[in-house]
Design a protein around this nucleic acid. Sequence first.
DNA 1: GTACTTGCAAAATATTTGCAGTCTC
DNA 2: GAGACTGCAAATATTTTGCAAGTAC
Lengths: 141, 141
Amino acid sequence: MKKPHDKTTRMTQALRDGGVRVTRQREALLKVLTEAADHPDAAELHRRAKGIDDTVSLATVYRTLTVLEREGVVHRHSFESGGARFEVADPVHHDHIVDLDTGQITEFRNDKIEELQRLIAAEMGYEIVHHRLELYCRKLG
Amino acid sequence: MKKPHDKTTRMTQALRDGGVRVTRQREALLKVLTEAADHPDAAELHRRAKGIDDTVSLATVYRTLTVLEREGVVHRHSFESGGARFEVADPVHHDHIVDLDTGQITEFRNDKIEELQRLIAAEMGYEIVHHRLELYCRKLG
DNA sequence: GTACTTGCAAAATATTTGCAGTCTC
DNA sequence: GAGACTGCAAATATTTTGCAAGTAC
C-alpha cells in the first residue's frame, strides 16, 4: 500500500522538474490535496493547509492551485453552485455524479460514453481537448 | 413558420399561469431571449434588453432570470470561464460543444449517451434529475 | 388596493493582483 | 544572488439584496 507521503514526494519532484519551486506553503497544500477524499474548494483547502502550516494565505492557495493545474497536477471543477473545487489529477479520466441532497460527489468512468463523445465531436469537425460530464442525481427508492 | 412573437406570447401566458407577473421589463427580456441565437450572459442580456426598454436594470435581469429558470422557461449554464449564460428552455434536452478558439457554442443531442447515463446512475442507485455534458474542442486540421 | 416588481446603491462571493519583503534553487 | 514566491490589502468580477417607489392584476 502506498502512503500519501510517497505520492506527495513524487508530485514535488514532478514540479521541480517542471521548473516550479517547492515552498513550505506548496508542500502543505500538496499534502492536503493528496489526503483529500472529497473535492474541496479553495477556502476549504486553505483551512486544511493552515492546519499544517499557519502561514499559508488564501491568495497563495489560489496562486498555487493555478500553478498545479497548469502543471497537470490537479484538476479544477466548477459544479453547479459555489466556487471551483479541486482534486489531484487522476491519470485515468473520470466523470462525476453529484448527489443533490447530500452534495456528495462520486466518480465514475465509462469508455463507451467517452468513445461516443469522440465520435460526435468528430462528426462536427471537432477534436475534443477535454470535457465535463456531471450527473446531478437523487438516490432511488 | 412561427414568428418569435408567438413564442414570446406563449411564454408570457405560461408565466401568468404560474402566478408570475409580466412586466414591461420581463417582456423585453423574454423578447431578447427568444431572439438570441447564442448563449448570452447576464450583462449581454442587459445590454440587449435596454435596446428595447431603457429602464431595465441589471439587477432586474438577474432577478428575472432566476424567476424564468424556476418557471422552467430558461436554462442557466455555467461554462468553464466567465459568468452564467442563458438560453430559452428547449423542450428537447441537448448538450454543448464549446469551441475553445472562438468561444462558439454548438448544440447536439445523442440518445445513446443519454441512455448510458441513465444506466450508469441506476447502477449506482441514483436517478438523474439533470445533467451537463460539455465538450471543449478545437477544429480538426 | 395589495402584493409583487423595480431601480439604485450597497453588500456579498469568489478570485486576482500590486507591492515590498522572503525564500528556493 | 537572481528570480520566483509570499502575505497583505486593495481591486475585480459576478451576483444578490435592502429599501422606497412603482405597477400588474
